[in-house]
Design a protein around this nucleic acid. Sequence first.
DNA 1: CGTTCTGTTGAATACCTTCAATTCGCGTGG
DNA 2: CCACGCGAATTGAAGGTATTCAACAGAACG
Lengths: 237, 237
Amino acid sequence: MSDAAREKRDPVTAPEAVMRKSPLFRDLTDDEWERLRAITSVIRAARGETIFMEGVEAHGFYLILDGRVKIFKLSPEGKEQILQIFSQGDHFAEAPVFSGKSFPAWAAALTGCTLAYFPAKSFRALVSESPGMALNMLGALSRYMHHLVAVVEELSLQEVPARLARFLLEKAPAGARRELTLAMTKGELALRLGTTSETISRVLGRMKKRGIIAEKSRKVVLLDEGALIDITHGARL
Amino acid sequence: MSDAAREKRDPVTAPEAVMRKSPLFRDLTDDEWERLRAITSVIRAARGETIFMEGVEAHGFYLILDGRVKIFKLSPEGKEQILQIFSQGDHFAEAPVFSGKSFPAWAAALTGCTLAYFPAKSFRALVSESPGMALNMLGALSRYMHHLVAVVEELSLQEVPARLARFLLEKAPAGARRELTLAMTKGELALRLGTTSETISRVLGRMKKRGIIAEKSRKVVLLDEGALIDITHGARL
DNA sequence: CGTTCTGTTGAATACCTTCAATTCGCGTGG
DNA sequence: CCACGCGAATTGAAGGTATTCAACAGAACG
């Protein structure tokens, strides 16, 4: 879409540069690298475009060269739960490539995206002959599993204020004055945290009223980190 | 515990037999098999015993030779969310071995257990020289990720009746008369589904009243499969 | 300067949890 | 063989948290 093409018009980093930086493709021999390049294709996705649907056979996986992608589940009623939001350098949909199953969730472009695409069959062949890549891949999948375990924990064990507090603490870079800029709309944040935008509004409102945070148009300053940690641990808000 | 030792006193299948059957160790060469055996140790865990705690450094992973194990998260208030229940032939805690992180959850024995244990370092060395095992491992991790995605979906997108209906449909073997025996207490089932035993009781009660299921001491018969599927899709109960 | 998307706020409601009181099931020991 | 005791399961009542629906305010963008 032209709308997408207009996003962030800085020269897109060369595919190679982004791929080289990925933990997945670190330590490749020249030979392995050549073979990887041979099976790589670069594709574009417009803002809002569906990259793949749940349930369809997995044909390959993706690495983001530019833009942001959301992975999500849909309920029969159309409610959405975002599993994860990926950005430059991240890869997604590796799991179905190796499990042989179909995609377990949806993927859609949050912004215009440039993606490197690796066909499943060729990539499996590559990995089966490259122990280094296999280990890298195992590491990547394992880390993603940690993330999913954390999502389950949040959804089932914590209430919305605790989930939000945890999110803020995780995203705010350490430093004297901890602050962060939300890289998403509050609606998206709500979907990631398994709640609604109204509830996010209300909880943020309560936090502001208590002087725990300050917030102005997606910029959040953590004023009382201790209180946030308490909320994380289940303290009433 | 002597109590555990008394469980199921049929002669424990030889470790080798169980390990051979695992998708993880299929297609190993004789050499690979020998090296695997060399790093394997067999350990016992009593019923209720903690196998590992969340947060401690992962030293290795496990394959169940006999018994059942639960993997779970704990909230600060002590509430428990079961991520998965494993039994004979299943393996667990592979992820931290490859991510280099610590255990992201707890593991405890539901029954007396016999476990094969593989030290992380030796196992990584083995995998790095065995492309077949690397691919098997990737497949196993990928399938586990599918499971976790399903758990997230259930917790965030579905209400308790839908989760329960889905569980029943999944566990009841296909056939003319679909029925199943719960391999766990209703309390455990509740923890797996992210709810309480009281709620499970009430929902099962409503299902019985509507003639959708029959139930008697852990034995459940699915009388109206269509209705169950509807509930899965969000139909009111 | 209007349109559209995003965010805020209020009121009613639904669903689940918690607490408490029983009841049931079953193995154990008298 | 029966009674006891303990964990598991059931049921009721009260309460809390989040959702939903709806109306509106604000910001971003062309």
